[in-house]
Design a protein around this nucleic acid. Structure first.
Length: 426
RNA sequence: GGAGAGAUGGCUGAGCGGCUGAAAGCGGCGGUCUCGAAAACCGUUUGUCCGGCAACCCCGGGCACGGGGGUUCAAAUCCCCCUCUCUCCGCCA
């Protein structure tokens, strides 16, 4: 959420920044409501101040036994009260429309975010590794997985519906191995691990920016809870409505969870395999940072995600998203894209974002810094995938496949796979 | 699912409808003492919104005792609804 006061005072800057991410905002309704809000507050508060003074006097008159005078004063104050009610009622309405307006606005891109309208304007920052050159016809992971008997798409559909996945045997083991390998690696680099609910209430989803605007992306239970689309939701909201000490920042958190996405608008895209499914596993990193160094924290978070790909020996590139391609809550984002032979292209496997104070304001996550007046102020939140497990498995199968259809297990994963070195043909 | 209890400041915990933004203790911060520390003692310590101001200092005012409504000149205190938490029983991995 943007700061109302900042938005009011820098309305053109905000409009332009939003436009740079393809969001055309008509600010007139906001400005009118904002002005009306302050007008109503001024009027209502003046009356309330009067009322408080008079009420105090009435109490004294009653005590002194001046009954007549007290009754007269009561009558007067009563009419003020009616006026106050009218003003407050309108104020409630104005504030509701104001906040719904603000809740729907995306974050402003950082000044360092490259300008652009879409995907094609994203900037490639660096590449690591070399895509494998096969001396045979490589297979896509959905065929590999099916042939090896470790992925069963058909039975998954029977159990749930399309876009769900069933892993069997070494496929299931590989899933667990990847999760543990990723989490352990992050923990060894200083992240604190958490485990928590994969259902979240609406306040939690509003805090991260998934609600109210993107409800259709989420699975909702009959209890009014939502299945989380990412552990970012859980991790970021851990400190909702809290005031942290600046001295304890930055906090580095990570968690493995299942993630659930409705993918309502993705019909026809990535329909095969593990790339786009309703339920997938992910190890997520979240940081709470001082505003002064959140951008440095973003760089190191990207390095932590890259580290996983490097240890797994998977070729990838780092993309910096342009303003037009930025996610709703982000001010600056790097995507990691892994090489997928079946796509003959790089495919997103991690997204690391600095959200600035956008989520912190929504979720009311603040810090107290003695060097900055000791008043609570919003901190910065960051999140990044480290990594999406399903897509990692897809990349692993495809990049490590051999001519006979078997798949080698990278060395770092073998300890997590009971020492197994390959997934053999059936 | 059944029965009951509760929700107050960073924490514990008081609070006859007006003198309570809130006692007391703990914690935190500052000081006295000390070579230094501890102890003791003294002082201090909520957040937010609106307005003034160059100002996140400060000044004036509003609001906040889980959330929402009501009664009243006036509500932490009375009434109603909701949410959440806890305890016991039942069921259960």
């Amino acid at each position: 959420m943007l700061d109302a006061k900042f938005t009011r005072e820098h309305i053109h800057t905000v409009e332009e920044a939003l436009l740079s991410r393809n969001y055309q905002w008509d600010s007139s309704a906001f400005l009118a409501a904002d002005a009306r809000r302050r007008e109503l507050i001024a009027q209502a508060e003046a009356l309330k101040a009067q009322r408080n003074t008079s009420s105090k006097r009435i109490g004294e008159l009653m005590k002194a036994g001046c009954k007549e005078e007290a009754e007269a004063a009561k009558e007067e104050v009563r009419t003020w009260g009616e006026h106050i009610d009218t003003l407050d009622k309108e104020l409630t309405e104005v504030e509701a429309s104001l906040s719904s307006e603000l809740l729907d606005l995306p974050n402003l891109p950082s000044t360092t975010t490259p300008k652009g309208v879409g995907e094609e304007d994203n900037v490639e920052v660096r590449r690591w590794g070399t895509p494998p050159a096969f001396n045979f016809e490589p297979e896509a992971h959905w065929d590999l997985g099916t042939n090896l008997g470790i992925i069963d798409f058909e039975r998954a559909v029977k159990l749930a519906k399309s876009r769900f996945v069933l892993l069997g045997g070494l496929g299931a083991s590989l899933e667990r191995a990847l999760i543990n390998f990723m989490a352990d690696t992050h923990i060894s680099r200083g992240y604190k691990e958490w485990w928590g609910p994969v259902l979240a209430n609406s306040e939690t989803l509003t805090g991260t920016g998934n609600l109210p605007k993107f409800e259709s992306d989420l699975f909702k239970t009959t209890e009014g809870l939502y299945l989380i689309p990412t552990a970012e939701v859980m991790l970021t909201n851990i400190h909702r409505d809290e005031v942290l000490s600046a001295a304890e920042l930055p906090l580095w958190y990570c968690a493995f969870t299942a993630c659930f996405r409705e993918e309502a608008g993705a019909a026809g895209r990535d329909t095969r395999g593990l790339i786009r499914v309703h339920q997938f596993d992910k190890v997520e990193m979240v940081k709470f940072a001082h505003p002064d160094d959140s951008f440095d924290q973003l760089e190191s978070m990207v390095a932590d995600a890259e580290n996983i790909l490097q240890l797994l020996g998977l070729p990838y590139r780092v993309i910096e998203l342009c303003t037009g391609d930025l996610g709703f809550a982000s001010t600056k984002t790097y995507d990691l894209e892994v090489w997928l032979p079946s796509y003959q292209d790089y495919k997103e496997i991690s997204s690391c974002s600095n959200c600035g104070d956008f989520q912190a304001r929504r979720a009311n996550i603040r810090m107290r810094d003695e060097a900055m007046g000791n008043k609570p102020q919003f901190l910065h939140t960051l999140n990044g995938s480290g990594l999406a497990v399903g897509r990692t498995m897809a990349a692993l199968l495809e990049n490590y496949q051999r001519a006979d259809g078997s798949v080698a297990i990278p060395e770092v994963l073998q300890p997590y796979m009971r020492g197994i070195k390959e997934i053999p043909c059936k």
